[in-house]
Design a protein around this nucleic acid. Structure first.
Length: 317
DNA sequence: CATGGACCTGTTTCC
DNA sequence: CCACGCAGGTCCATG
């Protein structure tokens, strides 16, 4: 399916420049980037796209303008634009990204609507209100290794701090991609980095976790990939064998980086949500988790994201 | 099995 | 402007 490769000429996209790549002449609004293309069918609203990209499940996206975002997925730089309900994208020429990869990353296909339908919103007014407020909110399909890395940095840090620590590591040890962006270096590369170096990049005590996980993986070739392919419970138990990976981080890595949609990470926001909106004051963490998995079902992780956003952005306040 | 403090450091709030 | 509490979690020691 070929969406028209239209070149936007709006002033929002900067002045148009021409340069050659091999023998082809390329018109591109920005050096090193391909032209804009539109993705026909999607159900994002400005709010749900913003919340999907910047709301705490990913730390690789930056807002470039009121309707535009830039992110790095693997080694590809990807721009997204949502104007008047039209979703458009472009990727770096050096490390291209296909439309198929993007629609998978953004979960743009019928299985999203099916997942929404399967959630218990008919009997749950709290969830129903969240779905209404953040209509179109998705779980992203991010690279597993990188997702694990970012969430290893997440303890007692805010989104902006996690983002800048991760960016610093990527810029220092990853591939330089231009635009001041680096790629995730990969665990093999991180294994060569002393903990002290990571501490200099402001990771604090999390540096020990990163170094520990890198060491752990160095002696286990294929371990992460194998873990991602295991059923949820098995995969979670395996992730928790690693230093610095407890219940919450394991669930985040599996939900956001391995497509385990039944994973239900409980952080302080979700803890508050379950207590205040579902009356679970006094329940232990494991009781809350059991309640959530039973009540929300197969797509508990998606429900979690709606409730998380609602709590964080205060729609019930 | 539940509870509580330590672990880094940037940010917020209070003198 | 400085000192102090706290933060999207994990680990280890206690009761």
């Amino acid at each position: 399916m070929e969406a028209g490769a239209e070149i936007f000429r709006s002033k929002d996209f900067g002045s148009e420049t021409k340069f050659s790549l091999g023998t082809r002449k390329i018109n591109s609004p920005e050096m090193g980037m391909d032209g804009w293309r539109e993705i026909g069918k999607h159900s994002f609203t400005p709010l749900s796209l913003e919340e999907t990209l910047l709301g705490g499940q990913s730390f690789v996206w930056t807002k470039k303008g009121s309707h535009q975002w830039r992110g790095v997925i693997g080694r590809s730089i990807v721009d997204l634009s949502l104007r008047n309900g039209r979703l458009s994208w472009r990727a770096s020429l050096l490390h291209p990204f296909s439309e198929g990869e993007l629609t998978k990353y953004l979960w743009i296909d019928g299985s999203y609507d099916a997942a929404i339908e399967e959630m218990p919103w008919r009997s749950d007014p709290v969830l129903r209100e969240s779905l209404r407020a953040f209509s179109g909110l998705r779980i992203l399909g991010q690279p597993f290794d990188e997702t694990l890395f970012y969430f290893l940095l997440s303890s007692a840090k805010s989104i902006s701090q996690i983002k800048s620590c991760g960016e610093a590591v990527a810029l220092r040890y990853g591939e330089k991609l231009g635009f001041g962006i680096g790629s995730f270096p990969g665990w093999n590369r991180l294994c060569e980095v002393p903990e002290e170096e990571l501490r200099k990049l402001k990771l604090g005590y999390r540096a020990k976790y990163v170094a520990g996980v890198a060491d752990f993986l160095a002696s286990r070739s294929g371990w992460l990939e194998e873990t991602a392919s295991l059923p949820y419970e098995k995969a979670k138990a395996r992730l928790m064998e690693m230093p610095g990976v407890g219940q919450k981080i394991a669930d985040c890595a599996l939900l956001f980086g391995a497509g385990k949609l039944e994973a239900f990470p409980i952080d302080t926001w979700m803890d508050k949500s379950l207590e205040r909106r579902y009356g679970l004051e006094g329940w232990s963490l494991s009781q809350k988790l059991t309640f959530a998995r039973v009540h929300f079902g197969k797509f508990a992780g998606l429900a979690q994201q709606f409730l998380f956003s609602s709590e964080r952005r205060g729609i019930f306040a």
